[in-house]
Design a protein around this nucleic acid. Structure first.
Lengths: 234, 234
DNA sequence: CTTTGTGAAACACTTCACAGCA
DNA sequence: TGCTGTGAAGTGTTTCACAAAG
């Protein structure tokens, strides 16, 4: 459909692999900073918290970047993964909703160092406008379209209350945003072709709660009592 | 192994199902608030953002809580899922690392309403001690063991810089915490039997970046130019 | 007639185990 | 010899499609 400019290897990487590439990238950056020039799949897998068979299978989807009997060149593999993900250049990002969480996101230094640049902070509340957060001033939500257009923004972050999130998503999509990271605890509906990833604190906690309950095998009160009788035995 | 107090149906619920139960729970709360007494799998699935076959299969792991030809009683199903997850009572939670993100987490109201109670905010930096955040005062990290013991804390949240996260995790585990929600961008190593869930902003953004790049089929500059020629066609 | 609950089929992902290359 | 890259086997998840139940 679209003419592809880049070399056409590595089509259709499995979603599970895509989700791990950033983890490998971070592990490689760590190894590089520690002065490691070369690493085996075993070493890299350990640094990334996966097993080596999975790592090798994942990397095999990108191409053949290792050397048998030796391992992987850290810098080279790092570049290849960054290129595959698309973080060799910066992506402009807008954050909408500058409450507590929006503040935290705006101040998060991992953005800059990992291929993202916050180009605007937007909030519907006039009380917050012109406030400086992380050196960026908060602008009215209605500036969204202009900013997306001018800066070529493809990625938007929603950190508003749940009630506002769908409206924000609709406006983002209409403006040209094709990928959304949603922190609001609500299901967004978006047209086909738009990607949404959701980060939901209380859902993560509830998943943990389920496992705690299972491990304990009984009620919370039981669990509390039992934990205090003796040490946890693995 | 452990004598079970509750009725022994619904063993070994698949992990993928467990991860969706909180989503169903939230959807049911929404329906209940809207005054809906009964819903079909189709309606609930729509509210939760999944398809109805998946929803029914998921629910079938908990038991048989629907009525053929009718659907599900919203309140009843809500209770059953809450019980299965273990959020019919409150779980005490400690948050370690009260920077920007820790502030946001401490102020997150979704905690209380969804079965969690923040019993302590801890930070290693004495500058932050006794500061009041969300009505809770920040205490020294060294109080961790005492708090975990006294309050029967099983779930800990790590919102520290990456460098400190492994130490915090080790101390938590030693103190008796069995489940950790980690916001620090690092791989934690913990003993078997301890659950870790990771929330990593820049990883989520990188996954989105990969898909944006794929959709665009070329470089960022190409993409920017193309988006401005015509509207996005699904 | 409607809608659930579920075997069976299809698909996706992980792990195994080793051929092949340096 | 040592380690990667990968078919094949194993495991988990989703979807299909329909029998059973109200």
């Amino acid at each position: 459909m679209t003419a592809r400019t880049s070399t056409d290897n590595a089509r259709d990487i499995p979603e599970a692999t895509v989700a791990r590439l950033p983890v490998y990238l971070r592990a490689l950056v760590g190894l590089a900073e520690a002065g490691t020039a070369t690493c085996s799949s075993e070493e890299l897998a350990a640094a990334a918290g996966v097993n080596s068979a999975k790592l090798r299978k994942d990397l095999s989807h990108l191409g053949s970047y290792g050397t048998r009997g030796v391992g992987y060149d850290v810098e080279y593999l790092r570049y290849q993964i960054a290129r595959e993900i698309g973080v060799t250049q910066d992506w402009p990002v807008v954050i909408v909703g500058i409450g507590n969480l929006g503040h935290a996101l705006a101040n998060y230094s991992g953005f800059r160092s990992r291929g993202f640049r916050v180009v605007a902070l937007l909030d519907a509340d006039p009380e917050r406008h012109d406030e400086l957060v992380a050196g960026i001033d908060v602008r009215p939500f209605d500036d969204l379209e202009e900013i997306v257009e001018d800066q070529g923004v493809a990625i938007g972050v929603i950190a508003t209350p749940a009630i506002a999130a769908q409206d924000v998503a609709d406006r983002m999509v209409a403006a040209g945003v094709t990928s959304i990271l949603n922190f609001a605890p609500t299901v967004l509906s978006v047209p086909d072709g738009v990607d949404v990833r959701k980060v939901d604190l209380s859902i993560e906690l509830q998943i943990l709660a389920y496992h705690v309950q299972r491990k304990a095998g009984g009620t919370v009160a039981d669990d509390f009592d039992r934990l205090h009788d003796e040490e946890v035995t693995a």
